[in-house]
């Protein structure tokens, strides 16, 4: 599992760089964030949660069953919305009410 950062959305605020527990994300000369060590990502999703413009998504490596989908999360009206973009262009959203999120 690793992340990808959409360069067109990134505003270079550096929040993802600051929180990555492996310090794997750097800012390039164009003031855009990029992951320097993609194989070292733990998949904690800290950066995705910090990004103010939803520029970061994560994906599963093929070696653990990944099929090319990208996932990110946004906060919408107090709900946590997860957005899965499948390779065929279809999209699935799952809304979680934080109060109900821990049924199990």
């Amino acid at each position: 599992m690793s992340i990808s950062i959409d360069q067109s959305k990134c505003i270079g605020c550096g929040k993802c760089h600051d929180v990555c527990p492996g310090t794997l994300i750097k800012i390039n000369e164009n003031k855009k964030a990029f992951i320097k060590y993609p194989k070292d990502c733990w998949g904690c999703t800290s950066c995705i949660k910090e990004c103010p413009v939803h520029a970061i998504s994560f994906f599963l490596g093929e070696d653990i069953g990944g099929k090319g989908s990208k996932v990110h999360t946004e906060k919408v009206n107090g709900l946590v919305r997860w957005i899965v973009e499948f390779p065929d262009g279809s999209v699935k959203t799952i809304d979680i009410d934080p109060k109900e999120s821990n049924k199990y």
Binding site: L60, S69, W82, K92, N102
Partner: peptide, 16 residues
């Protein structure tokens, strides 16, 4: 939903 909340890769694996 429970897995999205703590280990989202498992939910994605299920969906994929």
């Amino acid at each position: 939903k429970a897995y999205l909340n703590m280990a989202p890769s498992q939910t994605i694996r299920w969906l994929e």
